[in-house]
Design a protein around this nucleic acid. Structure first.
Lengths: 229, 229
DNA sequence: GCACGCAAAATTGTAAACAGTTTAGTCGAC
DNA sequence: GTCGACTAAACTGTTTACAATTTTGCGTGC
């Protein structure tokens, strides 16, 4: 995708990318404050770029900025997560419907490879591998769907959900169930059936939402919880 | 909505809001560069908040930042505008479908008032008035739809389209045609018919797209056009 | 007359400095 | 021993200053 970035970008963009990575990684935990001076020192830059990056992340919904208190990594409230799942279901359904009308042999092969990789990962109970391939599967579909705006919003929202979705694939049964949805979607895509693909895609996303809900027993998801003490 | 802001916001947020207004207004024209020192002086602040605000606007897609060149107000490429219309059709259709299932009497009354206001504006050929009411109509529906995430994305994308959509309502016939779509949507909403509302909403958005297309003869919409010379 | 090149001005990117607020710790009173 | 107030440290918000790049204007050469 867009992993190539020699250096023609302003520093704040690179800092933002690095912070995003650290948040997704788990290097920075939800609820934690982004210490500007510490991060600046760690990344070898000044506070300016770090501040700009933090504000960018706020706009995306990954952090919350409080006046005179700083930027905190968000703990997405439950209702917001549910709304986001509904949004993603809509977008992913659209993407699949679009792709069903224009899919090429190469694209089908690519998706099939990812599907089979997930099948193997599920059998081997390799949650981390499955997680990575799962992301790639969805992102490839959205990239093939030929609507950059829909793709961009989907990626942004998905990144937000990753703040806690990682733990959803801890069991082999969960992975198998998820991949069954992928199979149905893939078949509809290759059959050139837009509405069928859309339905399967929406159903699959609802399944993800359900897995997400069952994965959280009662962690902090209150609206304003986990911000400051 | 959220017009109340005593002052608990960081300065950069207020600058961002002001810049957005100036862009929508037309005070800042597409292609123009955001001169940091000039804007800072004009707004009575320093360059820092202006810079942060510009980066935020880049994230939203209203400006493009080039290294060592500054922030330029975007001239949305044609293909991006079309993609955005498709996205908005999806979101607005979803919002209408949701609302059809949960609309209250108060909400219906509110929307009806806006519709009648537009009817009057169209009859009086008051394009500016129609434009304002039209925005309110769509935004109110999305606010009533009870999905904050979908609403937020819709607002963001719509703001981007406003960069040139303003000129689409220059004729009375156009306004009447647009408002006929509003009437159909409103009837479906009050009838509690989600799928019908969704179809009308999507059709209405496609109509807006068509009006937009016919409104542009051949202005600069090339992908990378209008950036620097 | 036109193009090329060089130099000065303007502007952005980044870093450092200052002011105000929040947070933590300590001392004292009850 | 615990609660409360006061003081100091830490941190953010903003401004100011400096370095690097770009743009513009002018002069020279062809």
């Amino acid at each position: 995708m867009s992993t190539i970035d020699p250096a023609p970008h302003p520093l704040s963009a690179r800092v933002r990318a690095e912070l995003e990575r650290m948040i997704i990684d788990g290097t920075l935990s939800p609820g934690e404050r982004l210490n500007e001076v510490a991060l600046a020192k760690q990344l070898g830059v000044s506070r300016g770029p770090v501040r700009e990056a933090a504000r960018l992340l706020e706009r995306v919904g990954l952090v919350t900025v409080i006046l005179n208190r700083g930027a905190f990594i968000r703990t997405v409230p439950l209702d917001e997560a549910l709304d986001t799942y509904a949004l993603n279901a809509l977008l992913f359904g659209f993407g699949c419907a679009q792709l069903a009308d224009s899919i090429t042999a190469d694209q089908a092969l690519d998706l099939r490879g990812l599907y089979e990789g997930m099948e193997a990962a599920a059998a081997a109970n390799a949650a981390e591998k499955f997680f990575t391939l799962n992301i790639a599967f969805h992102e490839h579909i959205m990239a093939f769907a030929r609507n950059r705006q829909v793709e961009a919003v989907y990626l942004q929202q998905t990144r937000k959900l990753m703040l806690f979705r990682r733990r959803s694939f801890d069991r082999a049964a969960t992975m198998a169930e998820s991949n069954a949805g992928h199979r149905r979607i893939l078949e509809a895509l290759m059959a050139g059936a837009p509405e069928q693909a859309r339905l399967y895609a929406e159903e699959h996303t609802r399944g993800g939402r359900a897995r997400f809900l069952s994965a959280i027993e009662a962690p902090a998801c209150g609206t304003a919880a986990n911000l400051p003490k």
